Simulated scan of single mutants.
Amino acid sequence: MTAGPSHGPAQRSSAAGGGTRIRGTRQGTIIGQVLGELPEFRSAQDIHGELRRRGERIGLATVYRHLQVLRQDGVVDAIQDQNGETLYRRCESTAHHHHVTCRTCGKSIEVEGPAIERWAEKVATEAGFTDIDHTVEIFGTCPDCVRRRD
């Protein structure tokens, strides 16, 4: 099974493999700063909108490219919401983990899931797969939203 991502300051090429170094650029630094200030998961469009509100002229395609590399480097977490949209947040943990996200307010917490890891390994092994990876996204209603609803 694949271990958790590395969180070192690797300098990667673009996700397309074009050899373009995108980390260490002014845009990368600004995108990293914005991600560090956003407490919850946000879409690339939301992050782009926040950059524009701050007066930054960074294109949406550039935001997507940086987010992809930061995700591959393990610097940002990415989940898919219930509509299938990818949402991003600066990673708080260096260990492999999953998220439980409130479908009402968007609050998300990181959780380790040894049972999930064992299950994924078992299913893959039984199917003859090796070198597996997986994504698990758990949605529910957080205690604060339950209290507000009652």
Rank of each mutant, 00 (worst) to 15 (best):
R71L: 09
V123I: 12
I132C: 10
D133S: 13
L35S: 09
D73Y: 05
V76P: 09
E40N: 11
L60H: 13
H97I: 08
H96N: 08
H7R: 15
P5Y: 12
K107Q: 03
E112G: 08
G84Q: 10
I116E: 07
R90D: 01
R53Y: 04
A15G: 13
A120C: 11
R148G: 03
V146D: 06
V75Q: 15
Q27F: 04
V69Y: 09
G36W: 04
E110M: 02
G128Q: 02
G113I: 02
T94F: 12
Q33M: 04
R118F: 12
S6F: 09
D73W: 07
I47R: 00
L67C: 04
Q11C: 06
A115I: 08
I116R: 02
G113Y: 12
G24E: 06
E50P: 00
T29C: 01
A10D: 15
Q82T: 14
C91P: 03
E110I: 00
V75N: 10
F139R: 03
R148D: 05
R90P: 01
H7I: 12
H96C: 05
V100P: 00
C145H: 05
N83F: 12
I31Q: 03
E137P: 00
V136W: 04
R65L: 04
S13Y: 06
P9T: 14
A16W: 07
L38N: 01
I30N: 00
L60E: 12
E121A: 14
T20V: 15
G74E: 04
G8I: 14
I116Y: 08
S14I: 02
H99V: 05
C102F: 02
A16G: 11
C102N: 00
I138V: 15
G49L: 08
G49Q: 05
E40Q: 12
